[in-house]
Amino acid sequence: MARKIRVLIAKPGLDGHDRGAKVVARALRDAGMEVIYTGLHQSPEMIVQTAMQEDVDAIGLSSLSGAHDVLFPRVMELVHKNKMKVLVTAGGIIPEEDVPTLKKCGIAAVFGPGTPIEDIVKFHKERLKAKH
């Protein structure tokens, strides 16, 4: 049987907007991936624990509340601490000037508003191809 790509879509922090996260989740599902959605209001610890238990290939972090600059690096810190090999991307309302900091802590890509959904799917397929 073919290796199935598993992706965790996560909503860290108190942000209550998950329309975008759900749209991305659906698109990845339609591309044949298994998508686990955490639901709202997750702590970085919960997200990393979930990613570990679910043995996902990728984590998509979504935030629209402005707390990304604290929460996303904390997720990355835990990912590294647990020596997890996982592709982490970010999406939501993230100002241009914050992108370099996020990338520096290991986030592979930041998908802002207006990103074509196919780009997100393509990115995951290409970056995770080595596993297949």
Binding site: A31, G32, Q42
Partner: peptide
């Protein structure tokens, strides 16, 4: 498509950080 949305954890979030639980 062979894809799936696995959303059962949404109802169990309080357990995700519990070291005595594996979901």
């Amino acid at each position: 498509t062979g894809g799936a949305i696995l959303g059962d954890r949404i109802r169990m979030t309080d357990l995700s950080a519990d070291p005595g639980v594996f979901i």
